[in-house]
Simulated scan of single mutants.
Amino acid sequence: MPTEVEGYVRIGDQSLYTNTWKPDGPPVAKLVFIHGFNDHIHRYYELFPTLASRGIETAAFDQRGWGRTVKDPSQQGLTGPTSLVISDVADFIRSQLPSPVPVFVMGHSMGGGEAITLASDPAYEDLMPSIRGWVLESPFIGFPKGFEPSSITVFFGRLAGKLLPHMKRLSPLPPENLTRDPAVVKSLQEDPLLHDTGTLEGLSGMLDRTANLSGGKTTLNKGVKSIWLGHGTKDMGTSYEASKKWIEAQTQVQDKEFKTYEGWYHQLHADLPDNRGVFAKDVGDWILARLGNEEARQASDSKL
Results as ranks from 00 to 15, higher is better:
residue 4 E to P: 11
residue 11 I to L: 10
residue 13 D to T: 15
residue 14 Q to R: 15
residue 18 T to C: 09
residue 19 N to F: 01
residue 20 T to C: 03
residue 23 P to I: 02
residue 24 D to T: 15
residue 24 D to H: 13
residue 26 P to M: 02
residue 26 P to Y: 01
residue 28 V to W: 01
residue 30 K to A: 07
residue 32 V to D: 00
residue 33 F to S: 04
residue 34 I to P: 07
residue 37 F to Y: 10
residue 39 D to V: 11
residue 41 I to G: 06
residue 44 Y to K: 08
residue 45 Y to N: 09
residue 48 F to W: 03
residue 51 L to W: 01
residue 51 L to V: 12
residue 53 S to A: 15
residue 53 S to K: 14
residue 57 E to T: 12
residue 57 E to G: 11
residue 58 T to Q: 02
residue 62 D to P: 13
residue 63 Q to S: 13
residue 63 Q to R: 14
residue 63 Q to A: 13
residue 65 G to S: 06
residue 66 W to T: 13
residue 67 G to A: 07
residue 67 G to T: 14
residue 68 R to S: 02
residue 68 R to N: 11
residue 76 Q to W: 10
residue 79 T to E: 02
residue 80 G to E: 03
residue 80 G to P: 14
residue 84 L to F: 07
residue 85 V to Q: 09
residue 87 S to R: 15
residue 88 D to T: 14
residue 90 A to Q: 04
residue 91 D to V: 08
residue 91 D to N: 14
residue 92 F to N: 07
residue 94 R to C: 05
residue 96 Q to M: 09
residue 98 P to R: 09
residue 99 S to C: 13
residue 106 M to S: 13
residue 107 G to C: 10
residue 107 G to R: 10
residue 109 S to E: 03
residue 113 G to E: 02
residue 115 A to N: 08
residue 115 A to C: 15
residue 119 A to F: 07
residue 120 S to W: 06
residue 123 A to Q: 09
residue 125 E to S: 14
residue 127 L to N: 10
residue 128 M to V: 05
residue 133 G to F: 01
residue 134 W to D: 00
residue 136 L to N: 07
residue 136 L to R: 09
residue 137 E to Y: 05
residue 137 E to P: 10
residue 138 S to H: 05
residue 138 S to N: 11
residue 140 F to N: 03
residue 141 I to K: 00
residue 144 P to G: 13
residue 145 K to L: 08
residue 146 G to R: 05
residue 149 P to M: 02
